[in-house]
Each structure stands twice: as C-alpha cells, then as structure tokens.
Nucleic acid binder design. Structure first.
Lengths: 119, 119
DNA sequence: TGTAAATGCAACCTACCGGTTGCATACACG
DNA sequence: CGTGTATGCAACCGGTAGGTTGCATTTACA
C-alpha cells in the first residue's frame, strides 16, 4: 500500500472562496488591505488621502472587502475605523495550498499508472 | 536588538497579483481549475459537459485563466487540451502568506509600543 | 471524399462594477 | 450653539464581464 494521506475532513469546495478572490481582484482593494495591514486601523478619510479617487469610491471598496470578511469596521466617535481581519485571508490561503497538494497527488498517481503499464 | 527577520528581497507589491485574484473570483472558473487539477488535462467539450452553460462561455473562462497564467493549452489533433499550471497559483499563495506575516509583525510592534509606554 | 465532431470567430445583449456628484446627517469642539 | 469635519445615502454613468447565438474552419475516420 502506498502511504495514505490523512483525509481533509472539512474540505469545503474551492468555489465557496470565489467572493473572497473577487474582492481581492482589484488593485485598489489590495492597496487598502496592505495599508491596513502595515498601518493598523485607519479611518476612511485617512485611507482616501494619498489616492486619486473619491472618498465614496474608497467607501465602496471597503464595503466589498467587509462583505468578503477581509476587513471589519469599528466606530469611534464620529469616525469609523477599519482594520484588517486576518482569519478569512488565512483560510483562503489554505484552500490554495490544498489545490496545489491535490495537483501533486494527481501527478503522482499519473506517474504511477505510467510506470506500472509502460506500453 | 530584537531578532531581525530576513528581508524579503523579491517583495513585489501585492497589487501585481490582482489579475490572478480576479481570475479566481468566479465560481465556474474555480470549478474548472478543480476539474483540471484532479482530472488532468481535458478538452473544452469535456469541460463543458456537466455544466449548464455553453461551450463558448467555457472557452472564455479558460482564456481568462490562461491570461492569468493559471492554465495552459496544448493542441492534440483536432482537440485542444487544457491543463492546470501550478506555478502562478503557488506564487500568489505565497503573497497571501506574506500579508499574514506582515500583519503579525505589525501586531508585535504595536504590542511592544504599548508595553514600553504603558501610561 | 464526405461527414460529423471539436473548435474558432464575431456580433450581440444585459447586468454589474468602479467611479462620480450632490446633498443629508452626525458629532467634536471652540 | 454654531461650525467645520467625517461620514452616509442615492442617483447617475460608461465600460466591461459573462453569457448567448450563428456561422466558419479544421480534422479524424468510415
């Protein structure tokens, strides 16, 4: 018997991560994530300054990121601070890792089949 | 001195991965990737059967994935086989990993600042 | 050689996405 | 209490993404 890999019990289909990938699929939103990640929690106006688009556009981007669970907001006085929320990103990253492993596994199986039936 | 982390020399900004994330941000395309990954190279018609959308739609999705470097095609006779191309996906996965680490690093720095200036 | 299968090309349509502008609202602070 | 700052809400707009349909082209094979 070939050494059997431990089955991944909570193997949710990759498709469930589509909204997260879609949220990440925009340069400006990736910049926002980076900013929040290295700079800590920031307000909308803070995030807007330094960009060349309007505050409303930034607000929309933050909404998309929040809907995907990548950031969350916390009210403080009259301002609304946004902060990076690492859990969802990490989970999505692991799903990519899993795909890579499945690929290696498929390759190994193919190689085995070829070797055991060369002609 | 706190133990300094080895600087990541080829630290391309996260934004360069936006097209890859955008390509991954669609359920159907994630299904296609999964299919190619576990099932090996497949033709367009093979990939179309089992879905409820047209062959042309599948072709477009494959083009998007190919443009992002996630799949590649190889002609064989009158059919065109598509196969998963793991390199780009792995690189993108590592960029997510990096973000997570930057976040942890920022947290640690914040904690240090708070502890060394408690009042 | 003729025919059906696999694919390519192009036009078209609709919905949504990223962005703007204008105005309303909440609230810190002198 | 008034004023400026930070934000919310909604309408609007152009472009493009995702899908379809129709027809042309290539090629395996009887």
């Amino acid at each position: 018997m070939s050494p059997r890999r431990k089955p991944n019990l909570k193997a949710r289909p990759l498709q469930v991560h589509a909204p997260v990938f879609a949220a990440l699929g925009d340069e400006m939103r990736l910049r926002l994530i980076t900013a929040l990640c290295v700079g800590g929690a920031m307000s909308i106006t803070q995030l807007t300054s330094g960009t060349d688009i309007s505050r409303q556009a930034i607000t929309k981007h933050l909404s998309v990121l929040a809907a995907a669970g990548l950031v969350r907001d916390v009210r403080r006085g009259r301002e609304r601070l946004w902060e990076f929320e690492p859990t969802q990103l990490e989970e999505t990253r692991r799903s990519l890792e899993l795909i890579g492993r499945q690929w290696e596994h498929a390759l190994a199986k193919l190689k085995f089949a070829v070797e055991s039936n060369p002609h």
